[in-house]
Design a protein around this nucleic acid. Structure first.
Lengths: 352, 352
DNA sequence: GCTGGCACTCTGGGTATTTGAGTGCTGATT
DNA sequence: AATCAGCACTCAAATACCCAGAGTGCCAGC
């Protein structure tokens, strides 16, 4: 990217900037005449045309056909987003809307979907929020119920009040009371600890103290192993306002819309994409084909990870057409991520 | 409806039938010429035209414009569906696909979504299945965990392995051990009974034996009351293949599509509509505006309730354009409902 | 290096024309 | 009285065409 921005002088960049802004605001290919008026530089259309020819050669803009204005390409947008754009702070209406929407204390999942809806409503595009990765979570309570054969229904509560359940297959068949004992044992030892530390503790426990613990405890530990061994909590996300996307002519093509919505339903690709954003420090953007998924070829995705405490636990963002108001959306996503993180922080979670 | 079918002679009905069939199969307004060829009656186009004029007067068909063929109206479809149509049985491929898809033993919710997907895939329209009403369900286990203040997290397991949870607000603040006792009490008495009978038992319990039970039991009963008092399990449905609907030109209009998908997300209207179908004995059909919901003005909905044992527990169906192959869809929905009901029957639920 | 001027290109909208499918009606046939 | 053939008529969709407008590329002069 700096490759591009270095071999261009300020004037060209300035023009690219106003071109992108102009195109974003009214969706028409922008011609040399209007560009000459819009930009502060006092240049004639003819000069602009020369510059445009350069930009086109560099692959930053292109024209739909011979006698139309220019439209930014993906790299054009990219350059714009990376080094040209001037962010516009949220207005107070939006800010208060966000704050009030996310300050009401409620269940975590409600919070998530509220955030998603807010993103969608305020941007008039689609909002997406991943469910928080529950690594940090602490185990509150665990319970085993026998099913038929060697199957056991495990119910465990994390993070004060979130209930999960899972069916595990044990090596041998346990009675109800055996399971009861195992649960009691685990509850007495591990309640209050994070799942992560529980998992670790279990590993060492098995190796070290195998000698002097009884069979019941061993069984309990084995079962806990089965329960927490891996991805017991699946990645998932909450989408809102998908239908907003139907309004955009760039996307309202039948097939595009269909592949897009199919991708939303499939979830796999979207999750993968969002996962990549978890690693990013701040706002991360995929423009058009950059995502690598065909379904999003004509979309842009603006995301930001959100953290509870110091740990990144999820990602949220906005999906819309590549022609979106990045300068507004970027700070918007940024703020929302921060507000959501704060709202999810158990310390600030008011007791109702 | 019989009003219409009685004031028409067989010939007109016959013609209406082939008209609808023809229109369904190729989507073009059908003219007198092709109708004359299609029908077994040996009539000239001119005669057909007279009949058509009659049918139009009765509001059973209409022509998009002066020199186009005729298209069935909603009442035309209705008459067709009610008394004219000859159902086509499923072919073996479809049948085996359904059977194999629904015979694999799995969790109830998996079953439901499998059914929904099958409906969508095999009809190339949208499939919908309501979650079974869990009236018949039996209580397996209940557990109370204290939260802050007077809030209590209730976890209960029904139907062998389905986990539900709910937060209730109790009159006074309970300690963990008090809650434990209450749970023990309830488990010992009510485990194995249906929620319905539990609810009833609780009511009488409170009135009758108030005298000679101790405070702990009273608390337990009160809490159970709070838990089971009403709609603890919300109506919901599983939708599949919505995107199939984007393929139909009748629906692919931007605004229509949007209102339709919004309705799907809202869920409220759809649930209400499906609820009405619970009462019906067999297959129930809404054609176009008949549903009363604007979002479905251009859709038809073919549903059938499904039962576990003798009790109707849910509804499933197919949503598509009014121009759908009713003669195939109707038996299809019918069979699927029966297969799903059978598959959900705990008696036949293999122990894996 | 910038600019005005000019020829050229392409889209989009408007209008006219044709074609084909289909109707309604009328009057003859059975 | 029902059926039908024939005919005039209508309308939508396709085709062709033109025109205006927006915009470009390039050239030559400042």
């Amino acid at each position: 990217m700096s490759h591009n921005s270095q071999q261009l002088n300020d004037r060209s960049l300035q023009l690219l900037k106003t071109l992108v802004e102009r195109y974003i605001s009214d969706g028409q290919p922008v011609g040399s005449r209007s560009l000459s008026k819009d930009s502060d530089l006092k240049l004639s259309p003819a000069t602009i045309r020369n510059v445009m020819a350069d930009l086109e050669e560099l692959g930053l803009v292109q024209s739909p056909h011979t006698s139309a204005g220019r439209v930014p390409t993906v790299s054009g947008y990219r350059l714009f987003v990376d080094s040209l754009l001037t962010v516009k702070p949220l207005n107070t209406a939006e800010l208060t809307r966000l704050q009030s929407g996310l300050s009401v204390p409620q269940e975590a999942t409600e919070m998530i979907s509220a955030a998603s809806k807010l993103l969608a409503d305020l941007t008039q595009m689609a909002g997406v929020v991943t469910l928080p990765k529950r690594e940090i979570v602490c185990l509150r309570h665990i319970e085993f119920l026998p099913l038929s054969h060697n199957r056991v229904l495990v119910i465990f509560v994390t993070n004060e009040q979130e209930v999960h359940n899972k069916i595990i297959h044990t090596a041998k068949v346990f009675s109800g009371s055996e399971l009861q004992q195992a649960a009691n044992f685990l509850n007495s030892i591990y309640a209050g600890h994070s799942l992560h530390s529980v998992r670790e503790a279990l590993l060492t426990e098995l190796q070290d103290t195998q000698a002097h613990i009884n069979q019941g405890m061993l069984d309990a530990i084995n079962m806990a192993q089965l329960t927490f061994n891996q991805d017991s909590i699946k990645d998932d996300y909450v989408l809102a306002g998908e239908t907003n996307l139907m309004g955009f002519s760039e996307l309202s093509d039948r097939d595009r819309l269909r592949t897009l919505f199919d991708a939303f339903n499939q979830k796999r690709e979207v999750i993968h994409l969002l996962d990549q954003c978890m690693k990013a420090e701040g706002v991360q953007i995929f423009i058009g084909e950059e995502s690598g998924y065909q379904a999003f070829d004509h979309c842009s995705l603006v995301t930001s990870p959100y953290s509870v405490g110091n740990e990144i636990v999820g990602v949220l963002g906005v999906i819309g057409p590549t022609r979106m108001a990045y300068e507004k959306i970027i700070p918007f996503v940024d703020i929302t991520a921060k507000l959501l993180g704060a709202a999810l922080n158990p310390k600030s979670q008011s007791p109702l």
